[in-house]
Write a protein that binds this DNA or RNA. Structure first.
Length: 494
RNA sequence: GGCACCGUGGCCGAGUGGCUAGGCAGAGGUCUGCAAAACCUUGUACAGCAGUUCGAAUCUGCUCGGUGCCUCCA
């Protein structure tokens, strides 16, 4: 019996605007597609937040016993900066500015993306396909849509006919827009468009002579439209209809709307059962974005090298910080909030370290199974990590009370407590115990500090407080804080 | 302008028609040679104004403030 058979998971479905009981198409299996990054610059913390949300969702589905095929693409084909014809391809622009090949741009930022996610302890997706690796599949889809009369070619480019599609289908179903509003509210474009209607979107764009990223097609040399790659790759690896499609809130319209239209045009039915959207991470109250420069890079946080940061923060602290907010809420980044999270994270880890040394009693003074049920209930309620974390802190309180002999736990319950804490903290939330890793990294330093701790202990035993305080205060000035406890003195590095 | 969303105690953030998370900070205490650290205890807050209700922060309307999408974007 797998956990998912006894746990009722509810997911907020963007398509219906409601929390729905999750039921996968094939029992025991889940297909999940998440829109990955366009690799034309360094991944910033806002990007990371979205992928982290889905990393936790992936982890929890696996924890429940599902076999999950998680597909997250890399957008490595350049797409235009705007909808007008004179726009420049972002990757090509970067290549021009840095005087390198477009594929060098793509390689550089793909490596950065992977390196950063690894530091945050992400699980790799099951498949990570690239747009340029699926040009043929994309061309086949375009041909299919053209054959069905829902796309038209003009001057070597192919556009999706939104108005025609809307005669038989509902364009705007995901984002709650209707076609009349779109027509009335379309911004006036600076360039003269060759599209029949401004709402139409490109499936294939003709490559101008100077355009480097280009592929042959039935319509001449060109490159695919942005929305198409996700339809091609999700269909190829997950099928015409799959369970979960995720991405950032900013992709809801038009990107995901267009994906639905393309898939429906090809296959005659909706491609996805549960649409999920992670909300934006803001900085100074505004959305983080590559294009505006209002963002912070993970590397700056790990090193503390940014004007708004008072110090460096470990990846797990940042991970914990992000997971303290629900994935569907807008979340503002600030140094103060991060500092508060760091203290909370350390408190959680300290309690975890105490688990093995707890005294066992004949009975427990609290209901461990009710607590465990609460943890699952939190995650089952649309992956509510903040609530889960609040329950973890409830356990921290119990652990500390047991340590102080103000509460009791029996051996069976202790095992449940240990396994549940480990499962949720490490497996589901994906946090890493920084304390243990730090100490392993600096053995020599640890030994030196241990020596000083022993010298100080001797001085204190001799009531030579001048010496003991000197050791303590000077170490503190160097960033080494001594912590006197009942079982001896420990230290931490700041 | 259109379509959404949000406004919670000093700060960050959950939640929700009556039982009213959690973290940080603050206050009190335990411990300590003194400290620090750690731990324990402690807070009825939900933008404003009306309305519905036995009862609303939670539902409805209006006002004010903020954000996202409508162009590439996680």
């Amino acid at each position: 019996m797998q956990l998912y058979q006894s746990q009722e998971l509810k997911i907020y479905n963007s398509l219906t605007g409601k929390k729905e009981i999750f039921k996968s198409i094939n029992e025991g299996y889940v297909g999940m597609y998440v829109c990955g990054p366009t690799v034309y610059s360094y991944v910033h913390l806002g990007n990371v937040r979205t992928f982290m949300s889905f990393d936790v969702i992936f982890r929890y589905l696996k924890h429940l016993g599902y076999k999950v095929r998680y597909v997250r693409n890399i957008t490595d084909a350049g797409h235009l900066e705007n909808d007008a014809d004179e726009g420049e391809d972002r990757i090509a622009k970067k290549a021009r500015l840095e005087q390198i090949e477009p594929m060098e741009v793509v390689q550089r930022y793909t490596v950065d993306f992977h390196t950063i996610l690894q530091k945050f302890n992400f699980l790799p997706p099951s498949i990570e396909p690239t747009a340029t690796g699926h040009i043929i599949e994309q061309i086949e889809i375009i041909k299919d849509i053209v054959d069905k009369g829902l796309a038209y070619e003009i001057n070597g480019s192919v556009y999706f006919d939104v108005l025609k599609f809307n005669e038989t289908n509902n364009y705007g179903i995901l984002s709650g827009r209707n076609i009349e509003d779109l027509i009335h509210n379309t911004r006036v474009l600076s360039g003269q468009s060759e599209k029949k209607n401004p709402q139409d979107f490109a499936l294939w764009k003709k490559a101008e002579p100077q355009h480097i990223m280009r592929w042959p097609s039935p319509w001449g040399d060109g490159f695919p439209g942005w929305h198409l790659e996700c339809t091609a790759m999700s269909t190829k690896y997950l099928g015409e209809q799959f369970d979960i499609h995720g991405g950032g809130m900013d992709l809801k319209f038009p990107h995901h709307e267009c994906e639905i239209a393309q898939a429906e045009a090809c296959n005659g039915h909706s491609p996805v059962n549960y649409w999920m959207h992670a909300n934006m991470l803001t900085l100074n109250g505004k959305k983080m974005a590559k294009s505006t420069g209002n963002n912070i890079l993970p590397g700056e946080i790990f090193s503390g090298n940014n004007a708004i940061l008072s110090k460096a923060f470990a990846p797990s602290v940042v991970r914990f910080f992000i997971l303290q907010a629900h994935y569907r809420s807008i979340f503002d980044f600030s140094n103060d909030a991060l500092l508060a999270s760091e203290k909370g994270f350390n408190k959680l880890m300290d309690a975890l370290h105490c688990l093995d040394g707890l005294n066992i009693s004949d009975s427990s003074s609290f209901d461990i199974n009710a607590w465990k049920d609460n943890c699952y209930a939190a995650m089952n309620d649309d992956f509510n990590t903040p609530i889960l974390i609040s329950h973890l802190f409830e356990a921290v309180k119990h652990i500390n009370q047991i340590k102080d002999n103000k509460a009791t736990i029996n051996s069976d319950d202790l095992e449940v407590l240990k396994s549940t804490m480990h499962a949720f903290i490490f497996d589901v939330l994906g946090l890493v115990d920084t304390v243990t890793t730090d100490n392993n990294d600096s053995n020599t330093l640890s030994n030196v500090i241990e020596l000083l701790i022993n010298l100080r202990a001797e001085a204190r035993a001799n009531k030579d407080f001048a010496t003991s305080d000197k050791i303590r205060d000077e170490l503190l000035a160097m960033g080494v804080q001594l912590k006197d406890g009942k079982e001896g003195t420990t230290f931490s590095l700041s």
